[in-house]
């Protein structure tokens, strides 16, 4: 075989292989989304509440990711049909710091500029069967310390380190990122699935067994003085 034939055949083989991979690529694009746990795919702050409308509005430019200071915004790449190139946040990897730059830079209506306390990314839920302070009165408070919204979003039960989520939680996911328990007892659930909507409708706060002024910041008390 002379060199020309060899090169011709190599090129032809590469071409055929390339064209044969086209259906594969199309299939990957059209394939249904890999069933990820919903709490690792939370929407961006300020995103349109209707997920279909969000996908309509997003043009996949990736500017939100390019301005995100903690680089928490990820993109659907190969994992699913019409959501391709749209952004999401995986709080298990990295939570949102609610800086608001993505909303500011988004050219379309996909992300609307929203005050940080009105953002609706989801709401945190705590599994009381796995959280240290709830299980064995452990000393933790990591989620409380990291929360950017303070006692509006998360409080302790008075005199303990047991965290209780409040209606002010917007679901930024920093608590999920910081949670030291390997099974991640805290997770962000879909806003529409949460009880928060119910409380908003009836105009009440979820129960906390104390008045806010009695709640002490746990880190203010030296650990050796704690009595349960």
């Amino acid at each position: 075989m002379d060199r020309r034939t060899f090169m011709t055949r190599i090129t032809a083989a590469a071409g055929i292989a390339g064209f044969c991979s086209l259906p594969f690529a199309v299939a990957r694009l059209l394939a249904p989304r890999v069933a990820e746990a919903a709490e690792t795919r939370i929407p961006l702050p300020g995103a349109l509440e209707n997920h279909d409308k969000f996908i309509d509005a997003c043009i996949g430019c990736g500017v939100c990711g390019e301005v995100c200071p903690p680089r928490c915004i990820r993109f659907h790449t190969n994992d699913g049909g019409k959501e391709a190139n749209t952004p999401y946040i995986n709080p298990v990897e990295k939570g949102c710091t609610l800086c608001g730059l993505c909303m500011e830079f988004c050219p379309t209506e996909a992300l609307v500029v929203t005050p940080i306390r009105e953002v609706k990314m989801g709401i945190a839920q705590i599994d009381r069967a796995a959280c240290y302070p709830w299980v064995d009165r452990g000393v933790c408070g990591a989620c409380l310390n990291i929360c950017p919204l303070g006692t509006d979003a998360i409080r302790t039960e008075p005199g303990t380190f047991r965290p209780v989520i409040q209606t002010g939680c917007v679901g930024c996911g920093l608590c999920v990122e910081i949670c030291p328990e390997p099974s991640l007892p805290i997770k962000i659930v879909d806003y529409s699935l949460s009880t928060k909507k119910y409380f908003e409708k009836i105009g009440e706060q979820p129960e906390v067994k104390s008045e806010p002024e009695q709640v002490e910041a746990p880190q203010a008390t030296p650990a050796y003085q704690l009595k349960y």
């Binding site: 997003c58 996949g60 430019c61 019409k82 391709a84």
Partner: peptide, 17 residues
């Protein structure tokens, strides 16, 4: 489909992304 499909077949958009 309700998604900006044109973004997926437009080379300049693809390259930037």
């Amino acid at each position: 489909m309700g998604a900006v499909l044109l973004a997926a077949v437009y080379p300049p958009a693809i390259i930037g992304r």
